[in-house]
């Protein structure tokens, strides 16, 4: 390679570069133009309100009164006030308690997805049946489950208990049972979505791996342990992360079924936030709760990315 060739090469580059850059800029601009509609909606309905509630959380603002800047007092109040703090802590505890449903849901969904991934008769019917709760509104599901959990002897679950000779229970009206009831319903209604995601994950695993392993003499358990499990990692990680976020912001079923009761046993942070905002109209305090809930979600998601993501194998 001689000097003249290098020079020539350089000139070509110089000639090409500006127009390519221009074209790239134009493409970027076009891309943003296409994104504009959703960005506007995102800004107006998500980004702006989120930012606004961070601002509001530094005010005492009891509607319909005027807002007054109080710095971090709302946060201090939530964590240290003799009467408020215990309720706030209890709501955080309830939130984590409710999230216990997520891993249970994961295990059940995975088992069902493994079954539904087999070539069995009528598999389409089963897949549809398990997915149905997902396309039903949470409010409608809650109303039906209210009836299943009816505390009198003619509630469905109580009828079953009676026929088994077991004393009837108050279910949602019993402080000890209310949360497990909500978790059970949440597992049932959240399962369908997880199963579909798992099925997609299972079917993306190439069958050649299984065939090769079988030739090497692997049994069913080994197939699952050394092929399915590691290759399902990214799916699992996604389902876990989304599941935990959804569980932290669960609201509808609590509002319809228990209103946070009995004795605050199902008063999660998300519901507590709603109570403060729309029953007491204390917007500053409610916003502070919202910001704390956001930080909690951020922290949990970060932990999952930091520690769980590491152990996930990407193909």
């Amino acid at each position: 390679m001689n000097l003249s060739m290098l020079k020539a090469d350089k000139t070509v580059k110089q000639q090409v570069a500006p127009s390519a850059k221009k074209r790239k800029n134009k493409e970027t601009f076009e891309a943003y133009l296409y994104l504009l509609p959703s960005l506007i909606i995102f800004t107006v309905f998500t980004f702006f309100p989120a930012f606004f509630s961070m601002v509001v959380s530094t005010f005492r603002w009891n509607l319909p009164g005027k807002a007054m800047f109080i710095g971090l007092e709302n946060y201090i109040y939530l964590f240290t006030d003799a009467i408020e703090a215990p309720i706030f802590w209890q709501s955080l505890g309830n939130t984590f308690y409710f999230a216990v449903g997520v891993p249970i849901n994961l295990i059940i969904s995975l088992l069902l997805a493994l079954l539904l991934n087999r070539k069995i008769r009528g598999v389409g019917v089963f897949r549809t049946a398990f997915f149905l709760p997902t396309i039903t509104s949470t409010a409608a599901i809650s109303v039906v489950w209210l009836w299943l959990f009816h505390p009198a002897q003619y509630g469905l679950f109580n009828s079953i208990l009676i026929s088994l000779g077991i004393p009837i229970q108050s279910w949602l009206r019993d402080p000890l049972l209310a949360m497990p009831c909500l978790i059970a319903m949440g597992i049932w209604s959240g399962m369908g979505y997880n199963i579909i995601i798992f099925l997609a994950g299972l079917q993306s695993i190439p069958s050649t791996y299984y065939e090769a392993a079988k030739i090497d003499g692997a049994n069913t358990f080994s197939l699952f342990r050394f092929i399915t499990w590691p290759l399902l990692g990214p799916t699992m990680f996604y389902v876990l992360t989304v599941g935990i976020i959804n569980s932290l912001k669960a609201f509808t079923e609590i509002d319809v079924m228990t209103q946070g009761g009995p004795l605050n046993a199902t008063n999660t942070t998300a519901y507590y936030l709603y109570q403060n905002a729309f029953q007491f109209f204390q917007m500053g305090k409610a916003s502070a709760i919202a910001v704390l809930l956001f930080l909690l979600m951020l922290l949990l998601t970060w932990i999952q990315f930091r520690f769980v993501d590491r152990s996930v194998h990407y193909e």
Partner: peptide, 14 residues
């Protein structure tokens, strides 16, 4: 009934 006010109206109607 103990703490069953949410069901009161439907119980009455039933």
């Amino acid at each position: 009934p103990r703490n069953q006010h949410a069901e009161a109206q439907s119980d009455f109607l039933a």
